[in-house]
Amino acid sequence: MELSGILFYLISFLIMGGIYSVICLALNMQWGFGGLFNAGIAGFYAVGAYSAAIITSANTPNHVGGFDLPIVVGLVVAGTLSGIVGWAIARICVRLKADYLAMASIGIAEIIRLAVINEEWLTNGSLGVSRIPRPLEEFFTGRESEMVFFVFVWIIVAITFWVAHRLYKSPWGRVMRAIRDNEAAAESVGKDVQSFRTQSFVIGAIFMGVAGALSAHYFKFFSPDATEPLLITFLAWVMLIAGGSGNNKGAVAGALIIWAIWSMTEIITQQLPPDWATRSSYIRMLLIGLFLQFVLQRFRAGLFPEKAPKLNVKSHG
């Protein structure tokens, strides 16, 4: 491969890595700070992606919109709708043990998937939404437009990081982390803590929606296939835990490293003979599943452990 080819491979890698960084930072707000288990990341991502797609794509007879509005408007709507969904689910589940939120979030992702497939007037069903613009497309095309998009994505990563950092440093952030790993304390928390937990869940959901919007703009086309829970939800969890839950730098590092590993295994498996190539995707899934177990058992603090010592062991008596 020529040098520019490698450069542009690197850029497209960093674009996806950036989108995953936003998801991981968002997940870190929910899990790393609040101990809230979200198993339905793909749902929030889909809400964001479809909102942005419908708001910004060119007018079409196939479904509602597109409204051809500026990308910034799309991002705001994507974040807002995703945040509202997050708020509704958090209101119900935040007072209960994390497992309940996990079950409910699986449900919300499932409902959103059903709606996306069935509400053809809105989403064009399995055919998907097309002609989604990228920023400044009228001035740059081809590889230049990739460069522009790369900058755009990483500006969003920086904003997400800043918000996550502010949350982490806030007095409430400290309280949350103090009680997060202590189930007894977490159970006895009062209304105020519940409202902060709701807040961190909603802010996380907003950025998951934004990440969805970014990917819709990047692919320029969005269909239900792109909300495959495996690739979104599962990879994000592996990334965050490997990177270091509770640590924002860890979230970004985890996203980039795991995305690099994931992409490399794809390159390797593409070299395999054809009848192995179909099976290779299952081998990759198996390996990432085993990798998560390894990280959970041996490497729980992650690459960038949280600075404050974690109360990892159940409280006694």
Binding site: F37, D99, A102, Q293
Partner: peptide
């Protein structure tokens, strides 16, 4: 010995292992 939510995460991964 850890908070049970870690086991929930592990089971999420085990689901994937089983399926693949």
């Amino acid at each position: 010995q850890l908070p049970t939510i870690y086991t929930v995460i592990a089971s999420f991964g085990v689901a994937l292992i089983f399926r693949s």
